[in-house]
Simulated scan of single mutants.
Amino acid sequence: MIAGFGALNLDKIYLVDKIPSKDEEGFVIDVDLHPGGSAANTIAGLATFGVRTSFIGKVGSDEEGRILIGDFENRRVDTSGIIRAEGRSGVAMIFVDREGERAILVDPGVNDTIREDEINWDVVEKSEIIHMTSFICRMGDDSFRSQIRVAKRAERVSLDPGMPYAEKGLKGLERLLKETTVFLPNRKELEIVFGMDWRDAVGETHSLGVEIVAVKLGKEGCFVSDGGTEEFVKAFPSNPVDTTGAGDAFNAGFLYGLQRNKDIVESAKIGNYVASKLIERVGARSYGGIDPESAVR
């Protein structure tokens, strides 16, 4: 089983006539709701591909929380690790005008308040891999500290730091990195963490004990290393429609490959393939009909 541990957010996408400046008014043309959160998007993909999945996270006692849990239940993701709490669920309010320009406001809600004593340790013990992504940590560091405690007890940990954790730098992220098996940053995040060119940073990552590093390079594909094998893996041709969740989709494909005992190069090909197919659709969880095995046939 692969479990996710990260923020659960409901993306509320508002199509507006304009994005107002200070003291201006505008109006909403339409509203669309999409369950989100980086680790959650990856787990949704893995569940679609037939992998047993679970999730560790927190939602509030509101309609947003019910929607977030309901989406997982529809995908047959085990939700026993999701804490139901009083308060607001995480929400990202995304305002998009007719030209496609965006403005985003994030309310982390209860996401930042996961304490160690709230963790369902049965989920941790049953998971072969726990995939972690960043919390905003605006309301405190409880969830980040809980991730470190979970990482110490997990069989294997994969980590996509995102910008919130990359900006902690090596000093702030080192304790979690030392418990990480698979590191999944993009090029910019890796350079920010280590303060050096990403190629040099790969070696520094291995020196901390990380076994596998997969660096996402956008249109160039990715670079993978296990300390012995190092290889650039080209991206698949694609006609992008919506790039939201591309990195999460790569993670889903890459972890699928590892869970199916494929080597890091094959896993990288699957990650690139899944991402290339997802971005041809609208929505970060539009995995239906994508066959990850097609990448290596």
Rank of each mutant, 00 (worst) to 15 (best):
4 G>H: 08
6 G>D: 05
6 G>Y: 11
9 N>P: 15
9 N>L: 13
11 D>A: 05
12 K>F: 02
17 D>M: 01
17 D>T: 14
17 D>L: 01
20 P>V: 12
22 K>E: 15
24 E>D: 13
25 E>T: 15
26 G>F: 05
28 V>F: 02
28 V>C: 08
38 S>G: 03
38 S>M: 02
40 A>Y: 01
40 A>H: 05
44 A>N: 07
45 G>N: 06
46 L>Y: 05
47 A>R: 01
55 F>Y: 14
55 F>E: 10
56 I>S: 11
60 G>I: 04
69 I>Y: 01
69 I>T: 02
74 N>V: 00
76 R>L: 15
84 R>Q: 11
90 G>L: 02
97 D>E: 07
97 D>F: 01
104 I>L: 14
105 L>D: 07
113 T>K: 11
116 E>V: 10
123 V>K: 01
123 V>T: 06
125 E>H: 03
125 E>F: 08
126 K>R: 15
133 T>P: 03
134 S>C: 13
135 F>Q: 09
136 I>F: 07
140 G>L: 14
147 Q>D: 00
148 I>W: 06
154 A>Y: 04
154 A>K: 09
155 E>M: 12
157 V>R: 13
163 M>W: 05
165 Y>L: 09
174 E>V: 06
178 K>S: 12
179 E>Q: 13
189 E>V: 03
194 F>G: 00
195 G>C: 04
196 M>T: 00
198 W>M: 05
199 R>W: 00
206 H>V: 06
229 T>F: 02
234 K>E: 10
236 F>C: 12
246 A>G: 12
247 G>K: 10
249 A>I: 03
257 G>W: 09
263 D>L: 08
265 V>R: 14
267 S>Q: 13
272 N>Y: 12
272 N>G: 11
278 L>A: 09
288 G>D: 15
290 I>F: 11
